[in-house]
Design a protein around this nucleic acid. Sequence first.
DNA 1: TAATGACCATTTGAATAAAATGGTCATTAT
DNA 2: ATAATGACCATTTTATTCAAATGGTCATTA
Lengths: 191, 191
Amino acid sequence: MAVIDRKKLIIEAAAKSFSLYGYKATTMDQVAKLANVGKGTIYTFFKTKEELFDEIINSLIADIRFEVESAMDDSAWILENVDRVLSRVHEFRKSHQLTIKLIQEERDMGTQTVVEAMQRVEQSIIQYMKAIIQKAIDKGEIKTCDPEVTAFVMLKMYFSLVNDWQRNHPPLKKEEIVTLFELYLLKGLLN
Amino acid sequence: MAVIDRKKLIIEAAAKSFSLYGYKATTMDQVAKLANVGKGTIYTFFKTKEELFDEIINSLIADIRFEVESAMDDSAWILENVDRVLSRVHEFRKSHQLTIKLIQEERDMGTQTVVEAMQRVEQSIIQYMKAIIQKAIDKGEIKTCDPEVTAFVMLKMYFSLVNDWQRNHPPLKKEEIVTLFELYLLKGLLN
DNA sequence: TAATGACCATTTGAATAAAATGGTCATTAT
DNA sequence: ATAATGACCATTTTATTCAAATGGTCATTA
């Protein structure tokens, strides 16, 4: 008879529950029930609820990394890659249940653990954008600059345009955003 | 005997109290006491607490406008002006008690009235930045672009750099911020 | 040896009572 | 007359309390 991989069951159950109810509203009893496992068993694999949550966030980060890396094209130039990566991230955020739930929990309740987790996710996105930018600098496509600040600014600008702008204005189309990115960050405003 | 300008007293007291305690923690009794005025008197000038608050926010907006406009030099070119305006706004935000308190209240408690007020302040800053940008376009200093989106992006980028960046990194110096601004938005990253 | 769930200390949340607050208006002062 | 006032009221906010829920443990069981 097959030995049941309890750790896997727990992780799956936790992922499901965090996606459905968020961090705070997920209880360890619930996860145990969902995983068909005794509550104590969870604690043989994860020291705390937060550690279990971190495991789930790690796979989220890995998923995003996969999404981003499959969008990248090393032969394409930087604007193309930045655009692809950012729009993939955006699509991901809009469609991925766990992400949606956590963004909501962060905004509405400000749960500390969730804020920190989202911070970690953002940092990891910045890390891969940093690599893209470094490559572009090496190739001589763009000026020498701090790749991390640059990645940070790009991400913030992108999210401002897709999230904040439409609070007071009709949303920008995808191509408009690319055009704005090109104008502001790459070509520059100066004549 | 001099007739006391009670409206003025009320406004001064309110400004002081909102600066000291924020919106929620300021009570109408308190304002009345501070202004040496009966509570009912406040209501002969302002229909509600929110209306009183709006009055204070209006002067805040006017103060910022004055600060920005006195920093501007129409004969200077845009890089110079961007530098001056940003530095002034930066100093203002750091030193102006009311602004500090309201930013804090918005972040920590999310008071609806405060969120809306800050939104209004932001919108008004964007409006005069828009005018500045339009002027630069007319003078041919910068490329043709939508002045409002441009103002919006500039402001968001500025706030990202001064507020969000230092959550994970040592804060950027004023001159660094100006340099980054010039690099990203004006000169552009392209080689 | 691995898994479990009854159990425990602490935290959370519901219920309620008490205090505080925004706003009104009959009365008072000018 | 008009302007100012503060006691007063309805509603909201806060403090208190206590039961239910929760994260985590560990002696028992498989």
